[in-house]
Amino acid sequence: MERDGSMTDSVVMRASDLENWSTGAPDGARVRNAPAGDIEVVDLNAWFGNHRALRDVNLSINGRAVTAIIGPSGCGKSTLVRCLNRMHEEVRGARVEGKVLFDGRDIYAPDVDPVEIRRRIGMVFQRPNPFPTMSVLDNAVAGLKLVGGLSRSELRERGEWALRAAGLWEEVKDRLHEPGARLSGGQQQRLCIARALAVEPEVLLMDEPASALDPASTLRIEELVQELKERYTVVIVTHNMQQAARVSDWTLFMLYGEVVEFGPTSKLFTRPDDQRTEDYVTGRFG
């Protein structure tokens, strides 16, 4: 594999990307020469105490594409994405078995630091959760600032880059020092996306990112997802089938903690292989 070589390239490219963004390059797709960001899930099982939330999940998520996970409430879609960046284990009594290979390496191997994994696989949650003590700019660069090592001007540059990437810059450029919690709900969610992007992850996991937002904000987030897939692997959990159909390239349908069907979104919504998938996407249950 030529991955090692391209990894070095990607660092160079990212640095120049940063320059372009900060010098006011227009919002839009900039293809980053990054590793593929493929995720391979092998025999994954997850528990909350005695409740088995995932059953033998096997799955290949393609890099630089949007994968949607759909299914009725409680089917394990959130648990699945939370297993992809080792957030599941943060819940008391939660447990995981199986493998998740990220660019070929098992993120559950004993020598892997979950902190490192979460840096490379970012996450956006259902409810916008900006840090209430921080300003808009500080929120955007929180993942960098709290670790230290970057100067004020570097942070400001990275913050502007991330806010532009999240499509929020034009709306907040004059209120960077206001508390992040003072933005509207939709803006707060894009601030959270900016915060996740600022640490330059390779994958972005989104757990129902628009379900707490109004239709206009939802549309804005969906457009953003389309832009982001040029540079990131995006996995989006949604209970909204139209949203899955609009934004994703691949769709995974889950039921009772199991994968029912996984395939190209157009196929899954028009010619599904499984009767249960057809019943769900045509609104016969769920």
């Binding site: 943060e90 979460r118 970012g122 949650f125 840090f131 209430p132 929180a142 670790v147």
Partner: peptide, 29 residues
């Protein structure tokens, strides 16, 4: 302090002690 904030910090790839000292404690300041 809502768990959302702890999760947000951890999901950024911040170590647990950093999340506590820089996010949770200031929020409860």
């Amino acid at each position: 302090v809502p768990d959302d904030l702890r999760e947000a910090g951890l999901a950024l790839g911040l170590a647990r002690w950093r999340v506590i000292l820089r996010v949770v404690v200031p929020t409860a300041g």
